[in-house]
Design a protein around this nucleic acid. Structure first.
Lengths: 220, 220
DNA sequence: ATATCAAGCATTGGATACAATTTACTTCTT
DNA sequence: AAGAAGTAAATTGTATCCAATGCTTGATAT
């Protein structure tokens, strides 16, 4: 139980963001499962605050698509469906191929090396760290495009995608394949080969989509 | 001044959405200009409610990118910049070309006719109605793809784009060109020619981007 | 046995009250 | 006169309180 004692109290406008971050990590990691009710009272008690900042936190999570809000009804953790999964990954292809096209002319070798270093960590990481490191790897490559909206959109999609990755436990199935694809992407970036990078990225994301979609079809 | 008398009071959870809709139309139409401060007290008084639903409304608008929120500081109407404009329109190309590709195999002739009817109205409409009709025209063509996230994302981008359209008053410059492009798009849809529709849409949105970006460069 | 309705309980939405932070203004110093 | 510092006013963030809505349970009728 996290209490709001004077020692660990955050600055005045930071509580909703903190609560949202806490809930978000529980939702993405699967501690809070799809469809679970999120009562304002209980969350408020958990974080040692009143219901007011909790309501704002839930609104933030609803904007990120992690929570479903209905008027006069308890909030619920958003559902995971095969249709939504496909929706997310197709949006990722559209957004991330745009980002890599815009980023490639601006990217430096140092930035590519940073991505390569992250990829090295990914190889020797467990399931929990895979998702975040994988997101970081991609975002390092896109950052040079300097498009705030595009970057924010990709980050939001990565969050939604991570939920599926963690929930479906398909990481091991396509982990090796993903590593190979990351290396191919890095090569294309080094060569500043836009067409190759775009094609590589599209295959990479589509492959993940198909593996996960197949797994979901089995589980249902 | 809109009062919250029993006669026009909305249902219990609807106030934030109503307030957000009111503010949104003022922001998009330009009644509220970029950078303008939005004090919770005043808005609450205007709508005849307390500050609480106003805060939620502002949070909604912040999620849509129409308002900037900073902790302990007054909300402000989001700025209009040339960089953001380009960001938005490039995202539109990525999202809308995906939508038309997914929609084309599903679309019916009746739906295409509905879009054509909207296009006819656009020709004989003033500046204020152009933006909304134009958005509707596009969304009718995309709807058959049946992708909730994609559709919502496009709607949000259309909103952001409308602000620039109305603020920059460049509608008349490219209105005729836009009409021609809409007809070309409709033809491609009738023929179920995916490549033509995508190319047409990309040119259409990019052309609008360039006209508006040029105008902004002049105004600054 | 099942469906329907009512009453009480649980939970959310909104108003009011208070605390913390920022902004504006005044005053003092150089 | 310009700038710094301090103080008061304005404004936001959080807590508490009340009203409205939804949910659950149990009784009743079919």
């Amino acid at each position: 139980m996290i209490l709001n004692t004077p020692s660990n109290r955050r600055k005045r406008g930071a509580q909703p963001a903190d609560i949202a971050a806490g809930l978000q990590s529980d939702i993405v990691s699967g501690t809070l499962t799809a469809g679970q009710v999120l009562q304002q009272d209980r969350i408020a008690a958990q974080f040692g605050v009143s219901r007011m900042p909790v309501r704002e936190a839930l609104a933030l999570l609803a904007a990120r698509g992690l929570v479903d809000l209905t008027a006069n009804r308890s909030a619920r953790v958003a559902a995971l469906t095969r249709e939504d999964l496909i929706d997310i990954f197709d949006l990722r292809v559209a957004a991330e191929t745009l980002a890599i096209r815009l980023a490639l002319p601006q990217i430096t070798n140092a930035q590519i090396d940073r991505a390569a270093a992250l990829q090295a960590q990914i190889k020797a990481s467990d399931v929990a760290r895979f998702a975040t490191l994988n997101s970081q790897f991609h975002q390092v490559l896109y950052a040079p495009c300097a498009r705030p909206r595009l970057i924010a959109h990709i980050a939001q999609l990565a969050l939604a995608a991570d939920r599926y990755l963690r929930a479906i436990h398909a990481v091991f199935d396509y982990g090796d394949k993903s590593n190979l694809e990351h290396h191919a992407l890095l090569s294309a970036c080094h060569a500043r080969d836009e067409a190759a990078a775009v094609a590589c990225l599209e295959r990479h994301i589509t492959a993940a989509r198909d593996v996960l979609a197949d797994r979901m079809a089995q589980q249902d």
